[in-house]
């Protein structure tokens, strides 16, 4: 059993790793063979070198971007759940408010971001707000759907046994909503990172709160393409880590559910 799980894990890592090495090798080989200049397409070694050389600035930028991302994700989870919770209270409330939630979702945040950056003076707050506007929708939509997806038979049983509103919420609604809620959080975590990077691009903030997007912009101005790729690599890495963590949390919390699937 454990051997099988371990084997599956090894296969899950070994396969992608082989593909990675193969692609990197091909890339490096092509750059060397045709001596492509680094400002056209930097070889993996050039990118690695840039990563090493600019490690202090890049990790600082990564830290800023992650801080914005995680703040936006945290706020999305809290505020999104609360909004879903308010919406599910009654049909009139849902019908009245849902259109605005949708409006918020369909309006491209890239277009609103400059406005936010102007209106909100604190740069960090502006960045978090932009990222949150992108990330919050999956939490709202999924939690709402989850809170509604109750087994009607169980709901009848709770009613027959005169469960209070609170008991029904705690023992029936929340557990029923959990799987969809967690799926929403997982989507949101990816969107929060996208939102953070987009917001940084728009705000173009340098200095102490400079994020990875700023590093990419700067590298572009300076024609330092390897560094640009290095920053990009860090963004991807951050995204992968977020995905891994949220998936892990999901599997852990849903262990009880998964057994039933």
């Amino acid at each position: 059993m454990t051997g099988g799980a371990f084997g599956a894990m090894v296969r899950g890592i070994v396969g992608p790793a082989l593909v990675l090495f193969f692609v990197l090798g091909l890339w490096q080989g092509a750059c060397d063979a045709w001596s492509i200049p680094p400002y056209v397409l930097p070889a993996p070694t050039d990118i690695g070198h840039a990563l090493w050389r600019d490690a202090p600035t890049l990790t600082h930028a990564l830290g800023s971007t992650l801080l914005v991302t995680l703040s936006a994700l945290g706020l999305s989870i809290v505020i999104g759940s609360v909004i879903a919770f308010i919406l599910v209270q009654n049909v009139v409330i849902e019908r009245s408010l849902m259109p605005y939630v949708v409006v918020m979702q369909v309006t491209p945040v890239v277009a609103v971001a400059p406005l936010i950056v102007i209106l909100v003076h604190n740069t960090f707050a502006a960045l978090v707000l932009c990222a949150m506007l992108i990330a919050i929708f999956p939490v709202i939509a999924n939690t709402l759907q989850g809170l509604k997806s109750i087994d009607p038979g169980l709901a009848d049983y709770f009613r027959l046994h005169r469960a209070t509103r609170w008991q029904t919420l705690w023992r029936l609604r929340l557990p029923s909503a959990l799987p969809l809620f967690l799926a929403g959080v997982r989507v949101s975590s990816g969107l929060a990172l996208v939102g953070a990077v987009v917001a940084e691009f728009v705000a173009g903030t340098g200095g102490n709160s400079a994020g990875l997007a700023y590093e990419i912009l700067q590298s572009g101005f300076q024609m330092d393409i390897p560094r640009m790729f290095a920053a990009l690599f860090l963004i991807t890495l951050a995204g992968l880590c977020l995905f891994g963590v949220t998936t892990g949390v999901q599997n852990r919390l849903l262990g009880r559910w998964m057994a039933s699937r």
């Binding site: 027959l160 046994h161 557990p175 559910w257």
Partner: peptide, 13 residues
């Protein structure tokens, strides 16, 4: 109390 047609148990408990 009621025994519904399908068991209607809470799968998470």
């Amino acid at each position: 109390t009621l025994v519904p047609q399908d068991a209607t148990l809470m799968p998470w408990r």
